[in-house]
């Protein structure tokens, strides 16, 4: 019925617009609120119809980007040899990507050229995911397919580049499609499966995993908050008590959603590193 949180708290025209839209989209009027896919396709705000079309989702995405860039800009400008607290936290985050993801999987030498890519992926996904639980923003930009698709394309290009650099173009195809240690008749069925799995399924599953997780999380949050609101305000007597349960569930699920945001960022980055590693080593 409503986007969780903001309609209760603020009078932002954009968010009220989305709320109205959601009402119209679901067609409910005083009935039990059901979130629908319309959540993820808000009305355009500026430049409608052109390539620069701008809607609430894009706005949230840009806000998240600006906040992330600003935070890191400030911390980096004040970076000293002996770190202060903010710098310590930033360094913890950067070291997490560098040591636990890149160097653990790729090894110290091979990791170096890919660390910027992996760092960007991790922090971008985390920042764009976490807006799903932040009040006034309340939608994760990674829940529509554009951002995950772009990131998956970046990952795809990265691991193919790594493979071609390590083996040469023909050599890479050979080691991928015809892994060693297998008797040759099996190649007839193995090669198409490997082809599909490596060049189609990898980017596709990266995209869909991220998108589906964020989509499902957002729908559940909307469901719980909406139900709580409806139960508290518009239900009859005894059902109000159920509102408490749904509120509890909503809070628990918010915490879970924060964890999932971080976990999805970690998994995306980790799988990219793993794919790069698999392309680089000879099977």
């Amino acid at each position: 019925m409503r986007a969780p949180g903001p309609a209760d708290l603020g009078e932002c025209a954009l968010i009220t617009a989305a709320t109205n839209h959601l009402l119209a989209a679901s067609g409910e009027d005083g009935g039990f609120p059901i979130p629908s896919m319309g959540e993820f396709f808000p009305a355009p705000i500026f430049f409608e119809g052109t390539i620069f079309e701008f809607n609430r989702m894009t706005l949230v995405r840009l806000v998240a980007t600006i906040v992330l860039v600003a935070l890191f800009w400030v911390v980096t400008n004040r970076a000293r040899l002996v770190p202060g607290r903010a710098q310590n936290i930033a360094e913890m985050g950067l070291d997490f990507v560098r040591v636990n993801i890149a160097e653990e999987i790729l090894g110290k030498q091979h990791a170096r050229p890919f660390i910027p890519l992996l760092t960007t992926m991790f922090f971008a996904i985390f920042a764009l995911n976490i807006t799903g639980v932040i009040p006034f923003l309340n939608i994760a930009s990674t829940s529509v397919v554009a951002v995950p698709m772009l990131l998956a394309v970046a990952s795809f290009v990265a691991f193919i580049y790594a493979g071609i650099k390590a083996h040469g173009a023909v050599g890479y195809l050979r080691t991928t499609l015809f892994p060693s240690g297998v008797p040759w008749p099996i190649y007839i069925i193995l090669a198409p499966i490997e082809l599909l799995s490596t060049f189609v399924l990898r980017p596709a599953t990266l995209t869909i995993r991220l998108m589906a997780n964020m989509l499902a999380g957002h729908l559940l949050l909307v469901l719980f908050f909406g139900m709580t609101h409806w139960l508290f305000l518009e239900a009859d007597g005894a059902l109000k008590g159920v509102g408490v349960i749904t509120l509890g569930a909503a809070i628990a699920f918010t915490v879970f959603e924060i964890f999932i945001s971080a976990l999805q960022a970690y998994i995306f980055t980790l799988l990219t590193a793993v794919y790069i590693n698999l392309s680089q080593e000879a099977h």
């Binding site: 620069f52 950067l94 990131l151």
Partner: peptide, 23 residues
Amino acid sequence: DYDILWSAVALVAIALLFWKKVL
């Protein structure tokens, strides 16, 4: 297409931040 454009803008901004400045 508009979504791709704005996503690209956001991701390129973050990528430039990390690549050129932070790391």
